[in-house]
């Protein structure tokens, strides 16, 4: 599993539940180290052990934790860089949803060895969309539910998301868009660069 994914889990746990919780998780997962490197690749089994240990530590189901991870990736100040990259997807939430078709290609342009599963947006009506998540990364759809919910807030859109589960070869997320300009949302300044 790519270090960036492991690092995301580490960052989420440390920021949300504290460093001591992360230490207990790495200990229980028998990692032999406590810091994932973002630019190295690790054995998939390590990630699985970390997530299992985390579920046991928090006594919460995996899907729920992964959804929170998705929300964290977009909304936490630590992750401002990632939020900006996602906002390059479009000027509105609907444009962003359509840009998800290209997400795995965009990710690969930035980090060539990070392969994310294909996503496919199906427009049912102007207020209902289905996102098909192809396989390749267990739990990816759960993370995406959290991401989509947080990005909706970021654009100021009001949307209801439902993880419909596995349907054939894809996992399906339903996005019901109630109001695309519900609140002001957060600012996205194209030219904002880090000092």
């Amino acid at each position: 599993m790519h270090g960036l994914i492991n690092r995301a889990v580490q960052s989420f746990v440390s920021a949300t539940y504290g460093q001591s919780c992360w230490m207990r998780v790495t200990d229980a997962a028998d990692l032999g180290f406590t810091e994932f490197e973002a630019m190295l690749v690790y054995d998939d089994a390590m990630t699985t052990r970390v997530l299992d240990a985390l579920c046991a530590e928090l006594k919460r189901p995996r899907a729920e934790i992964l959804e929170d991870l998705g929300t964290y990736l977009v909304s936490h100040p630590n992750m401002e860089d990632l939020r900006r990259l996602l906002r390059f997807g479009g000027d509105t939430y609907v444009e962003f949803l359509h840009s998800l078709d290209d997400l795995s290609d965009r990710v690969r342009l930035a980090v060539s060895d990070l392969r994310l599963p294909l996503l496919e947006l199906r427009e049912v009506s102007s207020s209902e969309y289905h996102l098909h998540c192809y396989s390749g990364l267990p739990g990816y759809a759960s993370v995406m539910v959290g991401v989509l919910r947080a990005v909706a807030d970021d654009y100021g859109a009001l949307a209801f998301l439902t993880h419909e589960g596995q349907q054939g070869e894809v996992e399906v997320i339903t996005i019901a868009l109630v109001e695309s300009a519900f609140s002001a949302g957060r600012n996205f300044d194209l030219g904002a660069r880090k000092p």
């Binding site: 990259l85 390059f88 965009r106 342009l109 930035a110």
Partner: peptide, 8 residues
């Protein structure tokens, strides 16, 4: 997008 992604 690429400049930001690559910088990160």
């Amino acid at each position: 997008y690429l400049v930001e992604a690559k910088s990160a």
